[in-house]
């Protein structure tokens, strides 16, 4: 495993822990898009079904279980335990506009027309756009809490680091997966605007506020 991959995974892990901790500590999910969290839970459960068919390594198994468990726990906190604090009036992105294309594209463009492979492909396509409801919510309210910004930065960095990992693997192992690469580039590109605001504002101690 190369350095980009391990830092990418840790960044991903950090992101989901930041979010879970924020909700738990403040007893509130204000500013968090439940819809993005449902999409992420769907991404991890459909991608990691191979847990029951393929053993890769202890690291791989543990991380997969953590991602599935934490994403479901986050949805539980938003939609059940702290439901009263969920800002559903601002979480109005229509997720069927993301789900339907991801399903259709997975059926059309995949490596192998088998059940697990299509679910894996679906999860890759869906992950690339799953943050849109959250970014839409931030743009609608015009601001984000610092902790939400840190969450978004860690989550966005993870796929950017994976791109470096893929470049590294292409050079050193001559391995590449075009579906993951294209989706990963789309995913990272969606964060670019946010990355700019994060670096120019949040890192200088200001709140992330969009220009009116």
């Amino acid at each position: 495993m190369n350095i980009f991959r391990i830092i990418g995974d840790l960044s991903h892990l950090l992101a989901i822990i930041i979010l879970l901790r924020k909700i738990w500590k403040t007893r509130s999910c204000a500013g968090i898009s439940g819809k993005s969290q449902i999409l992420f839970a769907l991404v991890y459960t459909t991608r990691y079904l191979d847990l029951v068919t393929t053993y890769v390594s202890l690291y791989n198994t543990v991380m997969k279980i953590i991602f599935i468990a934490v994403s479901i726990a986050t949805c539980y906190l938003i939609y059940m335990k702290f439901k009263a604090t969920y800002d559903h009036n601002h979480d109005t992105f229509r997720i069927e506009f993301l789900l339907a294309p991801a399903v259709i594209l997975a059926l059309l463009i995949n490596h192998d027309f088998t059940f697990l492979e299509i679910l894996w492909t679906f999860s890759i396509y869906l992950e690339s756009v799953a943050i849109l409801p959250q970014l839409f919510m931030v743009s609608k309210t015009g601001e984000a809490e610092s902790i939400t910004s840190h969450y978004l930065f860690a989550l966005g960095s993870y796929r950017a680091l994976y791109i470096l990992n893929w470049i590294y693997r292409y050079h050193n192992e001559e391995i590449y997966d075009l579906i993951a690469i294209v989706a990963g580039i789309v995913q990272t590109a969606l964060y670019c605007d946010f990355f700019y605001l994060y670096i120019t504002k949040v890192l200088r101690g200001k709140k992330l506020q969009l220009p009116a």
């Binding site: 495993m1 991959r5 995974d9 991903h12 191979d50 393929t54 890769v56 390594s57 791989n60 991380m63 997969k64 991602f67 490596h111 192998d112 088998t114 492979e117 994976y162 990992n165 693997r169 192992e173 391995i175 997966d177 579906i179 993951a180």
Partner: peptide, 10 residues
């Protein structure tokens, strides 16, 4: 399959 080699990724 084609992506057997990258299955270790998350």
């Amino acid at each position: 399959s084609f992506r057997d080699t990258t299955k270790d990724e998350l």
